[in-house]
Nucleic acid binder design. Structure first.
Length: 274
DNA sequence: CACCCCACCTGCGTGC
DNA sequence: TGCACGCAGGTGGGGT
C-alpha cells in the first residue's frame, strides 16, 4: 500500500486528533506482524504516555512519546491506521489497538502482516532508521548528489529510485510515474543519466509526491487514510496499472515489464534511455 | 560492495 | 462451483 504520500497523508490526518493525548492501553492481537515488539514490551513502554509528535521518515511513522519512548510503525503493503470511536465493532485483520485518551481507538489493520510495530526505550535509536536514506524534499538531495550516488552503477534506474537506503519513500507506483514524467526509460542503467536527467528526475519526484499528498494519496486496492477514506491520486496516474492502455501523451500502448520482481509501467515512445 | 532473488502473508481476479 | 495460478503500494536476508 503505502508509499511516502500515503504515509504522510496518514500522519497529517492523525496528528491533530491524537497529539497531546495519552495512550491508555494496548490490545495485542493473536497473530504477529512481520516485525513486532513483544506484548510485554508494548505493555511496558506505551500505556500512560502522551503522544508528543508524529514524524515520518521514508515510509516509517515515528510516534514520539513522553519520556523519550518511540513507537515505530510501518504499514508494509496492506497496513492501515484507522482512528475509530472507542469500542467500535471489531474489524478483521486488526492486530494492534492503541486506546487513546478521549474516546479513540487507533487500530493497526494489516491483511498481509508485512507491517512493523516496534517500541524503542529512551535513548535507543530505532534500528530500522539506520537503513533509511534521504528525504526527497530535503535540501541534502540535489541533482549532483543523485548523480554521484549513481556513478558507476549498472542497476536499472527504476530499481535505483526505489532503493530506500538512498532516497526514502519512493515505491513501485510512484517510481513508474516519476520516470514517465521525467521521460526516462525505467531500464536505463542509473549511471548513464546526465546531470540534466537527474535534475528532471528530482523535479518530477517532488512534484508528483506533493501532488499525491494533496490528493490524499493513491488508492489502487487497499489504501485508506486514518478516517477510512480513499485517496484520489489514482485518477491522475499516467502509467501505473495501465498496461495496454493508450499513453495519455502520445497514444502508444503503455508497456508493462518486470524489474526486480515488480511490475513496471512505461510508455515505450515517450520514455527514452535504456 | 553491488546486485538479484526469494521469503514473508492473505485475498482476489482469471482461466480452465 | 471449484481449483490452480499469478499478482498485489515493502523490506530484509542470503547468495553470487
Amino acid at each position: 500500500m503505502p508509499e511516502l504520500p500515503e504515509v504522510e497523508v496518514i500522519r497529517r490526518g492523525l496528528a491533530p486528533r491524537v497529539l497531546g493525548r495519552r495512550i491508555l492501553t494496548v490490545v495485542v492481537g493473536e497473530k504477529r506482524l512481520r516485525q513486532e515488539s513483544s506484548p510485554e514490551e508494548l505493555q511496558q513502554w506505551l500505556p500512560g504516555r502522551a503522544i508528543l509528535e508524529i514524524e515520518r521518515r521514508g515510509k516509517y511513522l515515528l510516534f514520539h512519546l513522553e519520556g523519550g519512548v518511540t513507537l515505530l510503525l510501518h504499514l508494509g503493503m496492506t497496513g492501515r491506521l484507522l482512528l475509530l470511536p472507542a469500542a467500535s465493532p471489531t474489524l478483521p485483520h486488526v492486530h494492534l489497538i492503541f486506546e487513546i485518551e478521549g474516546g479513540l481507538d487507533l487500530a493497526f489493520q494489516d491483511v498481509r502482516r508485512f507491517g512493523q510495530a516496534l517500541v524503542f526505550p529512551p535513548g535507543v535509536e530505532p534500528a530500522p532508521l539506520a537503513q533509511v536514506g534521504r528525504e526527497p524534499f530535503s535540501r541534502q538531495v540535489t541533482p549532483a548528489w543523485l548523480a554521484g550516488e549513481a556513478r558507476g552503477r549498472s542497476r536499472a534506474l527504476k530499481n535505483f529510485l526505489m532503493d530506500g537506503r538512498l532516497l526514502a519513500g519512493i515505491g513501485n507506483i510512484y517510481a513508474s510515474e516519476i520516470l514517465f514524467a521525467a521521460r526516462l526509460h525505467p531500464a536505463t542503467p542509473a549511471g548513464h543519466l546526465s546531470l540534466a536527467d537527474w535534475a528532471r528526475v528530482l523535479k518530477e519526484t517532488r512534484r508528483i509526491l506533493n501532488a499525491a499528498i494533496a490528493k490524499g494519496g493513491t488508492t489502487v486496492a487497499d489504501f485508506l487514510n486514518s478516517r477510512g477514506e480513499t485517496g484520489l491520486f489514482q485518477l491522475e496516474l499516467m502509467v501505473y496499472g495501465l498496461g495496454g492502455e493508450p499513453c495519455g501523451k502520445c497514444g502508444r500502448a503503455i508497456a508493462r515489464i518486470s524489474q526486480g520482481g515488480r511490475s513496471t509501467f512505461f510508455c515505450p515512445r515517450c520514455q527514452k534511455g535504456k
